[in-house]
C-alpha cells in the first residue's frame, strides 16, 4: 500500500495546486453560468439579432477546441487587442484561462438552459402573461424555478467537464494542480520513473475525488429541489395560519 502513497510534503504541494484548480474552476463556473443564462435566454429572444448573436456564440464556443481557445486567449488576444483594450495586456494566465473555460462552459450551458426553458409547458407562460408579469419576472419567478430541475443534472456533468478542462492551463503557463504535479515531477526525477507513475496515479485520484464532490453537490441540489416540488406539508411553509387569524 505504501508504494502507492507520496510523502506528506508532496501531498501538501499537491494541495496547493488543487486549491488553485478549484479557484480557477469557481471563476470559470461563475462566468459560465452567467453566460449560459444570458445566451440561453438570448437564443429564444423575439429579436432576430439577439438570436443571431447568441447562436453564433454557442456555435463558436462549442465548435472550437478548449485548448486552442485557451491558447488564443492567453497568447494571441493580449497582443491582438492590447491596443484597443489595454486591460487584456497584463492579465495573469489564470484570468485569461478562466475566461476561456467560462466561454466554453457558456456555450454548452446555454443549450442546456434553452432546452429546459422550451420544456416548460406553454400554459405556464400564458398564465404569466394573463397575470401581466413582465418578461424578466416571467423568467425569474415562473420559468427558471421550474426549469432548474431539468437544468441541474446536465449542469453537473458540464461542471465536471470544466474541472477536467482546468488541467489545460498548466500547458499554457498557468498554475494549477497539474502544474504543481509537473514541478514535483521535475524535482523527483532522481526517484525514477516508477515514482513518477505513482505521482500521476495520485493526481488522477485527486481529480476523481474532486469530480465526485461536485457530483454529490449537484445531487444534493437536485434532491433539495425535488423536495420543494413534492407533497409539501401545510405547516412546513409560510406561517400563514397565524397571520390570517390576526388579519380576519
Amino acid at each position: 500500500m505504501e508504494d502507492w502513497l507520496l510523502s506528506p510534503n508532496q501531498y501538501s504541494s499537491l494541495m496547493v495546486g488543487a486549491r488553485a484548480t478549484l479557484q480557477l474552476l469557481a471563476q470559470a463556473f461563475v462566468l459560465g453560468v452567467v453566460l449560459s443564462l444570458i445566451v440561453g435566454v438570448g437564443r429564444l429572444s423575439e429579436r432576430r439579432w439577439v438570436r443571431g448573436v447568441s447562436f453564433a456564440f454557442v456555435e463558436l464556443a462549442r465548435g472550437i477546441s478548449s485548448i486552442i481557445l485557451l491558447f488564443i486567449l492567453v497568447i494571441a488576444i493580449p497582443i491582438l487587442l492590447g491596443d484597443i483594450f489595454p486591460w487584456v495586456r497584463g492579465q495573469p494566465v489564470i484570468v485569461m484561462a478562466s475566461i476561456a473555460l467560462g466561454i466554453n462552459m457558456g456555450g454548452y450551458g446555454a443549450e442546456i438552459i434553452r432546452g429546459s426553458i422550451l420544456s416548460i409547458p406553454k400554459g405556464q407562460t400564458e398564465a404569466t402573461i394573463a397575470l401581466n408579469l413582465n418578461p424578466t419576472q416571467r423568467l425569474r419567478y415562473v420559468v427558471l424555478p421550474q426549469a432548474m430541475r431539468i437544468i441541474l443534472p446536465p449542469m453537473g456533468n458540464l461542471t465536471i467537464e470544466i474541472l477536467k478542462g482546468t488541467a489545460l492551463v498548466s500547458v499554457a503557463g498557468g498554475f494549477d494542480l497539474m502544474r504543481a504535479t509537473g514541478n514535483l515531477e521535475s524535482s523527483m526525477l532522481a526517484g525514477g520513473v516508477i515514482g513518477v507513475t505513482v505521482l500521476y496515479v495520485n493526481v488522477l485520484v485527486i481529480y476523481f475525488v474532486m469530480a465526485q464532490v461536485i457530483n454529490s453537490l449537484f445531487r444534493f441540489g437536485e434532491r433539495a429541489l425535488d423536495k420543494r416540488f413534492q407533497q409539501r406539508e401545510g405547516r412546513a411553509a409560510l406561517p400563514i395560519a397565524t397571520t390570517h387569524a390576526a388579519g380576519s
Binding site: 409547458p121 400554459g123 405556464q124 400564458e126 398564465a127 402573461i129 394573463a130 397575470l131 401581466n132 408579469l133 413582465n134 419576472q137 419567478y141 415562473v142 424555478p145 421550474q146 420543494r228 416540488f229 409539501r232 411553509a237 409560510l238 400563514i240
Partner: peptide, 30 residues
C-alpha cells in the same frame, strides 16, 4: 392588460408554488 384577468381550461397553476404563493405573485410583483 392589467385590467384583464383570465382563467384557463387547464388551470396553468405554477407547480413550484403553493396555492397562496400562486395568488400572491401578481399582487406583489406586478
Amino acid at each position: 392588460r392589467s385590467n384583464i384577468g383570465m382563467v384557463f381550461q387547464h388551470f396553468n397553476l405554477f407547480p413550484h408554488m403553493s396555492a397562496i404563493e400562486n395568488i400572491m405573485l401578481a399582487p406583489v410583483k406586478v
